[in-house]
């Protein structure tokens, strides 16, 4: 991991996330036979929001402001720990996978607290859903990571997703397929995409993430959107590296492969959103339990 790689890693984390949303929206437009918004529309949206004023609910405190900011900071910190493609993470140490998972926990804590700070029934509903579904998503993530831990014998994300990964695919492909499936579910639920949550829905009663941020406006809402995109990017990087375990032994081709992978992932998400309806709320836990079981089966397979 050279200095250039580190710089590129951080720069990509900061700049690229809204692009994913642009690709997703383009894909959905293509499926619907529309032209769709420009690829850079999410950037325009962020720029527009940053120029707007803000409105605050009269019950709120500093926690309402802290929610989006802490969510963004923790996602950024998690991004530093996750390897982008074969080039490794900007920072890695033994046990960083635990910090990685818990950082999302901190972000979620503040997002939910900020939602409840408004005293709105809708936002309370969203907060309860977010907190409850994470109870099932987190063990799925942890058990999936444990497959990688057992395969690689380390607890650092960069090493377990490092050069040895291609070899593990050859030996224990079945387990890894289950992990990928489980991570895709975690990715979709954590970044509130269809079939778990619909970012474009307009009915508060059916939302999870969107309903928690109803009262955020202006630049603060921009921070919320940017943070959500970054979360998608970070969790997506995990899945992309798992699916594309090759090591091209050349820096630029590694980065290129990673970029292609991320674009492919966004197209995939767009396809899912185009061909599927969102699930009824009571079915979401079933699918999450399924993800946990998939990860658990992955572990059991390792011990044959």
């Amino acid at each position: 991991m050279s200095t250039v790689d580190t710089a590129l890693h951080v720069a990509l984390t900061l700049v690229a996330p809204p692009m994913l949303l642009g690709v997703v929206n383009k894909t959905k437009a293509a499926f619907a036979g529309r032209v769709g918004p420009p690829l850079l529309q999410p950037y325009y949206d962020l720029a527009r929001l940053s120029r707007k004023g803000m409105v605050f609910s009269s019950t709120t405190t500093w926690v309402f402001v802290a929610g989006p900011v802490v969510a963004l900071v923790t996602t950024l910190a998690a991004a530093v720990l996750v390897p982008f493609g074969a080039r490794g993470a900007a920072l890695s140490f033994a046990g960083d996978m635990i910090l990685f998972a818990y950082l999302f926990g901190l972000g979620r804590f503040f997002t939910v607290a900020a939602a409840l700070d408004t005293g709105s029934a809708f936002e309370g509903m969203g907060g309860a859903r977010e907190a409850t579904f994470s109870v099932l998503a987190e063990p799925a993530l942890f058990l999936g990571l444990m497959v990688l831990v057992r395969l690689s014998g380390t607890s650092s994300l960069s090493t377990m997703l490092g050069p040895g990964l291609a070899h593990h695919w050859g030996v224990m492909g079945a387990s890894l397929v289950m992990v990928v499936a489980s991570f895709v579910v975690v990715l979709l639920v954590e970044s509130s995409r269809v079939p778990f949550d619909d970012p474009n829905t307009h009915l508060e009663l059916t939302m999870i993430h969107e309903v928690m941020v109803l009262d955020h406006s202006g630049p603060l809402f921009g921070v919320v959107l940017y943070g959500a995109a970054m979360k998608l990017f970070v969790l997506g990087a995990l899945v992309v590296r798992l699916v594309l375990p090759m090591d091209t032994a050349h820096a630029w081709s590694d980065w290129g492969l990673f970029a292609l992978g991320m674009i492919g992932l966004s197209i995939g998400i767009g396809v899912v959103e185009s061909v599927m309806a969102r699930l009824r709320m009571r079915q979401v836990p079933n699918l999450l339990v399924g993800a946990c079981l998939l990860s658990a089966f992955g572990i059991v397979l390792l011990a044959r």
Binding site: S57, S58, T118, G119, S120, A121, D215
Partner: peptide, 9 residues
Amino acid sequence: GAEQETWGC
């Protein structure tokens, strides 16, 4: 003066 009631539909 950008303080309002919490939005309640």
